[in-house]
Design a protein around this nucleic acid. Structure first.
Lengths: 225, 225, 225, 225
DNA sequence: CATGAATGAGTATTCATTCAT
DNA sequence: GATGAATGAATACTCATTCAT
């Protein structure tokens, strides 16, 4: 395993629920499951292989997770929660006040932050993206909680900067889809098709932000659209 | 089946290889395979179900395609070829000459054209995107032929418009990744997560082009990046 | 296999449905299933063992019967039908006319006949009796069709002989429960606990009929029950 | 649990072996085991479910009973002992002397007594009857002790009343099988197929005794059987 | 060319039982 | 004594693939 485990796993194991302590075996199962799901896809992953890599008996998996699907959800669920956590906090809008007062600065720090998160959890996120089309429950959870939360907060943000005249006067939803599409495209093309080179990512993130900014920015904008 | 079959299937069946005529059964197999692969994913699709939907015996599938994997490739392969076809023709650069002489116009017509193609073949493209991470052979084929061809042609195009001063003076590869990310993001967010509403797509495509253009366009560009 | 297969199996295989011919393998599966179900009970019988004894692959079983339960039902169902067949025919009451005109004679020939049937199908009947408490569907089918049919016909018969003064004037239902209990007790004690010796059964059947008719008491029948 | 636990369980727990005191947990295990065995059958009952219903850990079961089978036997064994207890006492034949001097009266009181026992222990008896065909050890124990003891005592009884001229002069063994079949049939049809209505059972028992004694025929007893 | 019965390796899941705590 | 995590063999059932007809 040359690849350090996704950050989130560490979080999950160490921090999240001190009351229901996660055993050594359980942790091994989660790690192996992430590995195998990422490598082969959920449907093609066998509990047998997960068990073998985790160094436990196959039955042990089912003592902790009553089905393969529950194992999948117990990996992805908490990750979704953590992904939206920064958006979900109260007073999130405060970040807009000076000294981080420009949309430029806000976007750069926000993207850098979530990009870091994605990078640390790329395997789990990849599994999520792969399975969203097929796991009904997952899709609902994703749209109802993750997408909705982000959309709501971001809409407020966009309005804020539209009032300040930094963003062009299009419907906030349209602007957001622009931004989201760009970022998601950036993410997915990296995570699914390429392996991270691990280098120059900060620069690349900045470049894409500039790209986004001067596409939607009101300043110096040409006549249309 | 309210959804008319992907355009490409029709092409594949009717036009492409008159020498090796495709029988009625074979056509039914391909249609069913696309359906089932798209619904459940390749790994979770069973040849049994494909056969049933196609109204043929399970054995018949294996008379025409020696394995489930070959069936998958025989669906996706030709689609990739057709997708790059416009880029692959000689003298492709001619489109840059007047009267289609601006990057703006080139991009708009090109994207509209390929978007139309994607829309018609969304199920097959979805299968392709889903399976690229897991099918080594597919991935190679995709990068070696599809991505490379497009990249080469587009690099030439970008250089052309850089010389004309329409595009900002960044490395062509960087510019291309911007454009590609945006478009792919747009595509994927639509195809994987949402259902096409079939409405306002042209407008949406134009909007995203404008977004791309005035992000990378040299005119009225602010000082950096 | 010193024990010749239950008669019913032969019937099922040879006669019943000439349109949907039963293959050699299918027949072997049914035979083995009867064997193993009878030996170990339905729950403790493994499809693996059934397959082995039948000399087929385990998968073959599930090509013909989509679950272990369906295999059970496809064994027991037709047997129930055949068991009630004689009662179900129209004009069944004709057997009461001379020259078979006495209840004594009717009961003797009827019991001899169904006893013969039970003897030939003892393994399957034993499986039926064992599973009735646990298989809801089976129980319903049994009471709704088998028990009801027999009860209806027999009630008519009992009434008939009550009118002729051969049977005492108790409610027909009560009389029938007496008779049924005795016969079922006779059947079950033989089939579940003992192995048939195969000898003297006719005599035993006759004896039990006399017992049903006249009791064990030495004294003449008193007035009431 | 609207159904009060089988009487025998209470006996077993409270009275039988004061030396090896039965703990609270052990008692819960036995109760749950009876419940689950009766509901699903021995083979389909899982120790997991028994443990859950008993509110103990799965391991606890195996601390008291070294296997699932031993648990079964420890439930059924003592019940068999108690069932034959009245027959096993010395001087049992004394019940035949006046004032209980007629076979009629003897049978009625004996059946009423054992029927009461069966009613109180119906769940356990049902388990016994279900498992006798499959549990070799159980079957031996049953035939060697229960059946034999009853048979021996009853043979003496029958002879006694034959000498007094109350029972017809057939071989005692034959007469006994008549009686036993009837009673067992009565029992089984009630316990396996029907739910006790709890009403009119005494009457029903009396009726079946009369039936055994005098048959269903209206005419006076003919000379022979 | 098409069939569909047959296969056997593979699937997720359950189970009675063990044992360190 | 009691626990419950762990086991590994067994379970019913599915699958892609083969092949005689």
């Amino acid at each position: 395993m040359p690849d350090p485990l996704d950050d989130w796993i560490e979080d999950l194991l160490k921090l999240d629920r001190p009351e229901e302590a996660i055993t050594e075996k359980q942790s091994m199962i989660l790690r192996s499951a992430v590995e195998v799901f990422a490598e082969k896809g959920y449907a093609a992953a066998s509990t047998n292989e997960i068990a073998k890599r985790a160094g436990v008996a196959e039955g042990t998996i089912f003592r902790h997770y009553k089905s393969k699907q529950e194992l999948l959800f117990s990996i992805i669920g908490p990750m979704m929660v953590k992904f939206v956590a920064p958006f979900a906090i109260k007073g999130f809008e405060k970040v807009l006040d000076p000294p981080y007062g420009s949309f430029d600065q806000f976007l750069k720090s926000m993207v850098a932050n979530r990009l870091e998160f994605c990078k640390k959890n790329r395997r789990v996120i990849r599994i999520l993206l792969q399975e969203i089309p097929f796991q009904h429950e997952l899709r609902e959870q994703f749209f109802d909680h993750v997408a909705r939360t982000i959309l709501d907060k971001m809409t407020a943000i966009v309005r804020h900067f539209q009032e300040k005249g930094e963003i062009l006067q299009a419907p906030p939803y349209t602007v957001l889809r622009f931004i989201a599409s760009s970022l998601i495209g950036f993410l997915i093309t990296h995570m699914l098709f390429f392996e991270y080179d691990g280098e120059g990512e900060k620069e690349e993130a900045d470049r894409i932000i500039n790209f986004i900014l001067y596409g939607v920015s009101a300043e110096n904008r040409p006549k249309s659209p």
